[in-house]
Computed example of a mutant assay.
Amino acid sequence: MTVYQSIHSAGVLEAFAPGFTHTSVTRRFGVMQRALGAWIEAERDLEHSGSWDPACDHWLRDAEAARAAVGAALDALCDTPAERLEDRPLLRIARITRALSLSEEDAEFAQLYARIATSGALLRCPGRHPLARRVNLMLAEARRALAQLAALPDHAVVIEGECVEMMPEDVPVAETGFTEASDTYPQAMQAAPGA
């Protein structure tokens, strides 16, 4: 005997909600994260080397090459258009990271780092669906890496002494509306075509 049971539409949507799938932004974000980790390690090697010693020149060259790799990865990432709403926070933190890596003044570095240290809604992916959770993990990992970068001797004194909380003033209204999106997964997937 066959027994039929009706399934509510909400259960069907939840059952067929896809898990995490990569976009061009998430792939390039991963490349940037690996390059950033290599740069931090190269800078840590420089901490313990004697800059006056010619035997340590290779560490300096490695650090410069690692910084250039981070810059190339950030340029490629920042030039990538968002394919879905969940890509936007990744692009925001990438743009701030690029500005941090290019900053040459202590006060500018401190202000940029303050944007990341205060995890506002613009640097989070709203929702409780698998895609939002994965993106938030990627953002948290980026914040940890940037905290390690800020803890290096070149920046540690600046961050501890002069960090000023600063929020972006030029945020478009459409993007602030995105931060208040609902927690339902299917609505968050209604992004750009092909997402």
Rank of each mutant, 00 (worst) to 15 (best):
F29P: 12
D154R: 11
T97G: 08
I159G: 09
W52Q: 04
A174Y: 03
E64V: 07
T176W: 09
G161R: 14
I93G: 00
V164I: 14
Q33Y: 03
G127T: 05
E83L: 04
A147Q: 09
D79N: 14
W59A: 03
C56G: 13
T80G: 08
R44P: 02
P193S: 02
A174E: 13
V135R: 05
E43A: 08
L139I: 15
R67V: 08
F29K: 05
A99T: 01
H48M: 11
P168K: 00
R143V: 14
A38R: 01
A188R: 14
T118Y: 12
V3P: 04
W59D: 02
A73E: 02
L112Q: 03
A82K: 06
I7G: 02
A76V: 07
A35V: 05
G71C: 02
D57H: 09
G120Y: 07
V157F: 14
M189S: 02
T118G: 08
M167A: 06
V173C: 07
A188I: 10
A181W: 01
P89G: 06
R28Q: 15
S51F: 15
W39I: 01
H8W: 13
H22N: 11
G50T: 00
E104H: 12
R92N: 06
E83F: 08
F20D: 01
V135P: 00
Y4M: 11
A72Q: 05
A82Y: 07
P18V: 07
P81H: 06
A42D: 03
L60I: 11
T80R: 09
V157Q: 14
H58I: 09
G50W: 04
L36C: 11
G50V: 00
P168L: 08
D79W: 11
E47H: 08
S49H: 15
V164P: 03
E41M: 15
P172M: 12
L131A: 10
A145N: 09
E108H: 09
L100C: 07
A191L: 10
Q111I: 10
I7W: 12
A114F: 03
T23I: 03
Y4T: 10
A17V: 11
L146S: 12
M167Y: 11
A142S: 12
D79V: 10
A10C: 13
I40N: 13
A110L: 02
E104M: 14
Y113S: 06
R124K: 14
L46K: 09
A68P: 00
E160A: 14
Q187K: 15
L112P: 05
R28P: 15
P193F: 01
G127C: 10
F16K: 05
A66E: 02
A191E: 06
T179K: 00
A174I: 14
D79C: 09
A17F: 14
T2M: 05
L122W: 03
A132K: 04
R133H: 06
R98C: 10
A17G: 07
A10T: 12
R128A: 13
A195H: 03
I7R: 09
L100G: 08
Q148D: 15
A181K: 02
E180W: 01
V3K: 06
V70P: 00
